[in-house]
Amino acid sequence: MKNNFMNHLFKKLRHGTISVSLITVTCLFINKEAISQAEKDSAKLSATMTVSYKASNGSRSIKVNLKRKVEKKFIAVDNLKTPVSLYFKSVKEHNPADGTGLVGKLYLGKDGEGVFEIPDDINKLISGLHKYTFIAKFDADPIYEDAEEEISIADSKITLSYLGEDSIKTATATLYEWKDSAYVPVAGAELKLGIKRTFSIFPIGESGAVTDSSGKVSADLPLDMPGTFDRKITIVAKIDEHESFGNVEVSKEVPWSVLPEPIPEIGRALWATGDNAPYVLVFSSLSIIAVIWGTIFYLISLLIKIRKIGRDKSS
């Protein structure tokens, strides 16, 4: 009884101490929080934003990249808690406060990069404009300073034609820009031609070829390049990081006769799945198992027989 009482008292005491210490800790914590918040505001890391534009077969996208400098080297920022917002400037004056002109918000990936695919409705707007500006904004991040970057693009167009004879297969691309009220050829621009592969574009023709006075570049295709299994190959014409056009590319699928090596069927093999085990292995192992386990079951039946004899005798 006495013991119980003491225990109770002790508990109460302990409880009291705990609450007091809790309060102190909370105070400390709040203080600390406040201080560190202030510290953070003054010592945010600066980040550099780059924005690039790409039009591929008419669908547009904006790529945003965020980097920071560490010991004279740029490294990608990662683990961002805040998304990057992209605004289209020309719809009406954009307003981050109420979201006017907002194209979208995107959390950058581990490599500090993100791609905004421009949605169809904005695409429609753009097509009539021939000149357009996007603004990417990154703000209110707890770790990084705010960053903002603008990109302006002038409209351009590439056409691609292909002439496929037996021994010569030529691709020709023409670059146009919008001037006054019509598309006119652009001379002296670097226009690349290539063959589309899964991970890359295989360049064809001279490297560094520029458009002639009629805005054209031509190249012969390598005759031994394998196409797809349905006898097609895709040729690509593109300009990279042009100061007023950005990245623009068009592609075209053309008939082709060189097929890739046929893919062999995965037959029965030691490394194949269990269903595709070699017949010899399956049959030999099954027969061994059948013989041995057959005998084992026979032996177990003998045990049952012994038991039966025992029962019969005793009854």
Binding site: L299, L302, I306, R307, I309, G310, S314
Partner: peptide
């Protein structure tokens, strides 16, 4: 013991089983 009764039949079965095994 499976009701072992020391009978010759049981004994015979055991001998046979041992040889097979």
């Amino acid at each position: 013991s499976l009701g072992w009764k020391y009978s010759p039949e049981q004994y015979h079965i055991v001998k046979k089983a041992i040889t097979i095994l």
